[in-house]
Amino acid sequence: MDGDDYEALPDELELWCVYCGHHDDHSEFMTQQQLDRAMRAAGDIGVQILGQALDEAFGRSAMRSSRSSRSGFGIGIEITYRSEPFYPEPLPGIDEESLIRIRSCGSCSLRYAVFGEHRFCPVCGQLPAMVVALDALAAETARLDGLAQLSADVAAGLRERGVFTRIWVDTLENLVGVVESLGSAVFRGAVADAGVRLNGKGNVFQRLDHTAQLFVDAGFADLRSVVDNARWRRLIKFWAARHVFTHNDGLVDARYLTKVPTSTMRIGQRLTISEQDCRQAIADTEVLCRAIADLTRP
């Protein structure tokens, strides 16, 4: 977390792990290296405090550095103390990977950095569903951008092994998951009897028309009207392609042709997909996500 933002937090506030959502006292989030450094500092301070106490007890001059006494048993006891300066060694350094992705929470404005995908703000806890959705879409775009930066030789080798195709197929699968999570969160947050309405409907948020109708039946606008017709048709096609790849190894079936009646493919042929298809699907999915989030806003 940003140092100034952290110092401004109340001591009794519990913090959240941005990755798993565990929340606990501040001290529970100290790394081992930070703990080692703190323990060394505490040990050095302890030695200095003890030295100061002994100096005060025995005095600092050589004339007072030795005291003797005789016990009731007639045994002489002599205590000798010599004051020596304490030179602490340098504290252990912190050798941890630098964070480069800095975030600012839209709810509490806390500035924090993360190593990867996360679902929680260190202070607020669970991030809004729309924030999670946009993060996921940005990750899909970044993955495609990363592939585009590969050298020609490496890219050719991966392409010939089908790696690019598998990544593009995974992109479609992930986009459906993004919409499913967002749609479910928005619907459950806005509809009091969401559990009753969803009972027996299975993975309804994986099906675009059914999702749209679900919101209509609950009194909200029709996504099929909010999203322009050309974009909605493309989304239907992308969703149908994802279903075929997931459940039929990409081979066209009757269900696909029903969903995409303008297709020139035949039953049994295998669909092909491209990077441009994926980029278009990401752009269309972002529009759809924003439309879903806007449905329940006043």
Rank of each mutant, 00 (worst) to 15 (best):
I45C: 08
D2G: 02
D4G: 05
H210L: 13
L137F: 07
A192K: 15
E78L: 12
G93N: 03
R234H: 06
D284G: 04
A38E: 13
V179M: 04
D277A: 14
L208A: 03
F205G: 00
S151H: 13
V216L: 02
A113E: 05
E97W: 09
E140Q: 15
I79H: 03
Q126S: 07
A221Q: 06
M30G: 06
F86S: 06
G93R: 10
D170W: 03
E28T: 11
G93Y: 03
A155R: 05
A212Y: 04
S71K: 10
V260S: 13
D228A: 06
I282T: 06
G219T: 05
L288D: 01
M63G: 10
N229Y: 07
T141N: 06
E89P: 03
E286C: 07
L127Q: 11
I94L: 15
L182F: 07
S98Y: 07
G3H: 08
V186M: 08
S66C: 07
F220A: 06
D209R: 04
T80Q: 11
A190M: 10
E78I: 11
I49E: 14
G162S: 04
A156H: 05
L175K: 00
Y256S: 12
A194K: 00
L214T: 01
L198R: 08
F29C: 09
F238W: 14
D36E: 14
S181N: 08
L137W: 11
F205Q: 02
S107A: 12
E12L: 01
V176K: 05
R197V: 06
D193F: 01
V196S: 14
I102C: 04
R231I: 09
I79P: 05
L35S: 11
L198G: 04
D95M: 08
L214A: 02
H247W: 14
A139N: 11
L251D: 03
G219A: 11
C121R: 02
N199I: 02
V179A: 06
E97G: 13
R64S: 14
K237E: 15
F238I: 05
A291P: 01
L257A: 09
R161I: 04
T296L: 00
R111G: 06
A142S: 12
R234M: 04
S274Q: 13
D55A: 11
D209G: 01
I45M: 12
D5R: 00
G74W: 09
G51T: 10
A155F: 01
A133R: 02
W16D: 03
R207D: 14
R231E: 10
L257I: 09
S65A: 15
L91R: 00
F238H: 15
D228Q: 04
F238D: 14
R159Q: 12
I77N: 10
S109Q: 15
D4Q: 09
S69V: 14
L134E: 11
L295N: 07
S263L: 10
F73P: 05
I100T: 15
